[in-house]
């Protein structure tokens, strides 16, 4: 790996915990490349994660890093950002972490449009605990807690984020690693709540149970089923069934929470002087 990227990693701690073929390392690499590209100040960048395989990524990154509790990363990140707005705060989370136990925090962080970048390592399963279904597990697939096939409908993380008020939403995948890094860059650059849905593979807990083949085959599945935003615009809903759309899905402008709170401070202080 390039030297400039290497210094952003804690190489000493890099015999990572992830299984062979896991996509988490690819998403981590895209994240670090994005940070390197942006030239973020290492002293002023904070990485916050929840609990899960993916959330262990924070420990491998050479910044102030905070590995919190299951589902709660965004609450800690909100406290950090609000207390010290000059920091760039990036949140790493799993699909279960972000949208099951942490779902309430996810929609409220989006609603506040607080300037955080959230990267969801979306493997459609609970990896850490050994393959139970998550809110992103596709209907009909198998999980250790859905031995007869999953009957629930999955969230679309992007639609959820947009509906809740996120002002930058994009999707990438472990296969499309360059474009994943590109949308992470844009998400970090964006002022407001940004969500990157990073589709990634869990060969051990999802792939095996769902007969997806070797990790390489799971990456090929991503290649074959991803449709760019531009291409999707020309397809019918029927043609898009079973596919996932990658690229920049949403961008809007809205007041950002910390900046708005600064106005509260100004109003309160003006009032106090009277």
């Amino acid at each position: 790996m390039e030297q400039s990227v290497e210094k952003l990693l804690r190489t000493k701690h890099l015999a990572h915990i992830w299984c062979p073929g896991c996509g988490n390392g690819t998403v981590l690499a895209a994240t670090v490349r994005a940070i390197e590209h942006l030239g973020l100040d290492q002293d002023k960048t904070v990485i916050v994660s929840g609990i899960g395989c993916s959330s262990r990524a924070s420990g491998y990154m050479n910044f102030d890093t905070l590995h919190t509790a299951h589902g709660r990363a965004l609450t800690f990140a909100t406290g950090i950002k609000l207390a010290r707005p000059e920091l760039t705060v990036i949140v790493l989370t799993g699909d279960g972490d972000a949208t099951a136990i942490g779902g309430n925090h996810f929609i409220h962080a989006a609603r506040r449009n607080i300037d955080l970048t959230t990267i969801v390592f979306n493997n459609g399963i609970y990896g850490m605990t050994g393959g139970q279904y998550s809110p992103l597990t596709p209907t009909g697939s198998y999980a250790s807690t859905a031995p007869y096939g999953h009957i629930e409908r999955p969230f679309d993380i992007a639609k959820l984020a947009i509906a809740a008020g996120a002002t930058y939403v994009a999707r990438g995948s472990a296969y499309h690693t360059k474009m994943l890094a590109d949308v992470i860059i844009k998400g970090i650059e964006h002022t407001g709540f940004s969500v990157i849905d990073a589709v990634t593979q869990c060969p051990t807990s999802f792939g095996r149970k769902n007969k997806m083949g070797a990790p390489a085959a799971m990456l090929e599945w991503q290649r074959d089923n991803a449709v760019t935003v531009e291409a999707a615009a020309k397809l019918t809903p029927e043609q898009l069934a079973g596919k996932f759309i990658i690229g920049e899905l949403h961008r809007s402008e809205a007041p950002e929470y910390v900046a708005e709170y600064d106005k509260v401070i100004a109003r309160a202080q003006k009032g106090a002087k009277k």
Binding site: F76, T78, G79
Partner: peptide
Amino acid sequence: IAGMGAVCGASLA
């Protein structure tokens, strides 16, 4: 829960 997480984050900051 969120309140507790946020105060922890602020304190670390």
